[in-house]
């Protein structure tokens, strides 16, 4: 069960801020202040995903 599938979503709470930084298993990244919206973005993969450089 814990072997994993490689499809790992990751959300880091950026230290010192209220921001969440999400990384989809496809490598796309996203920032949000609300975990509900973060998961909506994440799980919409690949819809609405942008390349990391688009976020800067």
């Amino acid at each position: 069960m814990s072997g994993g599938t490689g499809e790992v979503y990751r959300v880091d709470w950026v230290p010192g801020t209220d921001l969440l930084h999400g990384t989809c298993h496809c490598g796309r990244e996203h920032r949000a202040e609300d975990p509900v919206r973060m998961w909506e973005w994440m799980l919409a993969h690949p819809q609405g995903h942008r390349l990391p450089e688009d976020d800067s």
Partner: peptide, 13 residues
């Protein structure tokens, strides 16, 4: 303290 969350979708972890 801020947290880091990881979800392994297929494994349900």
């Amino acid at each position: 303290t801020p947290i880091t969350t990881e979800v392994d979708e297929g494994a349900g972890v």
